[in-house]
Amino acid sequence: MDMKRDWTLPGLTVGFALIAVVGTLVLPDWLMALTVNSFSRALAVLGLMVLWRCGLVSFGHALYYGLGAYVVALLGKDWGISEVLITLPAAALLSGLVGFGIGFIMRRYREIFFAMLSLAFSMVMYGILVKTEALGSTDGFSIEQPSFMGWTPEDATEKLHTIFLMLCFICWAVAALVHRYLQSTLGNLTRAIRDNEIRVEYLGISAQHAVHIKYVMSAALAGLGGAMLAISLGQVDPDSMVNWPVSGELVFVTILSGPGSVVAPFIGSVLFELIRTYAFEWVPGAWQLIVGATLLVIIFFLPGGVWSLISRAIGKREDL
């Protein structure tokens, strides 16, 4: 493996540039909206993937996903700030900060305790939102029209295209950064933590600190993803952003994508959105069945997720 050249960065650059250009030229609006949804989610999945590499599954990242969304919404509602250059970083930063706080507790737990405790935290947040009339309770509320560096789009199509292009850039930058992080010593402390924490400690570094850093990262990324989703949907509500099925969905896409590469979450997320769209059309009422069956198939036959199929295909081509 280590002898081969790493094509991830050029791949990301060319890939996102192509998607941006081709997407703007040919994608119908509904497909573009679907891509925006997918990429927003993929940002959160990217963070979950880093945790998944440590063997950690969070069933509660909708907490940060929703937090990011509500930060954007509240900045507009209470302060009249709709500039994405402010709202997006604010969402990521605040989610990261909350993640930093909760991380002090989370970093002590592994396996199912980690999963269940994160679920509990997210459900507390859900409970608070549902009971808070000022935040629209279960209905949520709508978000101010976003402005992009002072410019506000005139109609829905213009807004969608702008968000799409901006998202392509953000995803490229974030994926490249995460990729670089994964190549660092700290970033490599993923499988090591999953395999043997005792050894990690006796090598002179705290496994808990390493998990904490990754947890904060994943929280910030989920917040960013949620913020993007909120901006593109134009509204926030607890059930589609904070409730536990949302966390389950994020976990599902993480497993579907596979931990192999930072590219995987984007492919997995688009795939997920496509399956969902067609499932609702062709076999309404069997959505959970499809998700469940897919998850089982991946666990048993494709532990590396969809990415492992792609990396195998690429591997073969290189052999030729």
Partner: peptide, 13 residues
């Protein structure tokens, strides 16, 4: 990698 990471910044190399 760990032995040579005396600080957080080192760990990001």
């Amino acid at each position: 990698g760990i032995a040579e990471s005396k600080t957080l910044f080192d760990g990001l190399r």
